[in-house]
Amino acid sequence: MPTADAATRQAFAALEARSGARVGVVALDTGDGHAIGYHADERFAFASTNKVFIAAAVLDAATGSDLDEVVHYDRGDLLSYAPVTRPAVDTGLTVRQLVDAAVRSSDNTAANLLVERLGGVEAVSRWLRSTGDDVTDVSRTEPDLNTAVPGDRRDTTTPAQSATDLRAVLLGDVLDADDRALLLGSMRGTTTGDGTIRAGVDPAWTVADKTGTASYGVRNDVAVVTPPGRDPIVLVVMTSHPAPDAEPSDALVAEATRTAVERLGATTGG
Score class of each variant (00 low, 15 high):
T3N: 04
A7N: 13
R9K: 05
A14N: 13
E16Y: 14
R18D: 13
S19E: 06
A21M: 08
T30I: 00
T30F: 07
G31H: 01
G33H: 06
G33M: 02
H34E: 01
Y38A: 08
E42H: 15
A45Q: 10
N50G: 12
N50Q: 14
K51Y: 10
V52I: 13
V52D: 05
A56H: 10
A57G: 07
A62F: 12
D68N: 10
V71R: 15
H72P: 02
L78V: 05
S80P: 06
D90S: 15
L93A: 09
L93C: 07
L98C: 10
V99Y: 13
V99Q: 09
D107L: 03
A111L: 05
L114T: 00
V115R: 02
L118H: 05
A123L: 04
W127C: 13
R129V: 07
G132R: 03
D137P: 04
S139Y: 12
T141L: 11
P143L: 00
L145P: 04
T147M: 14
P150G: 03
P150S: 03
G151F: 08
D152E: 13
R153T: 14
A163M: 12
A163T: 02
D165Q: 13
G172M: 05
L182H: 09
L183R: 02
G185M: 01
R188I: 00
G189C: 11
T192W: 07
A199K: 11
G200D: 12
D202N: 01
P203F: 05
W205L: 01
A208E: 11
G212E: 14
A214K: 14
R219G: 02
D221E: 12
D221F: 06
V224E: 04
T226N: 03
T239L: 13
A246V: 00
L252C: 10
R258E: 07
R258G: 06
V261I: 15
R263W: 14
G269K: 01
G270I: 00
G270K: 01
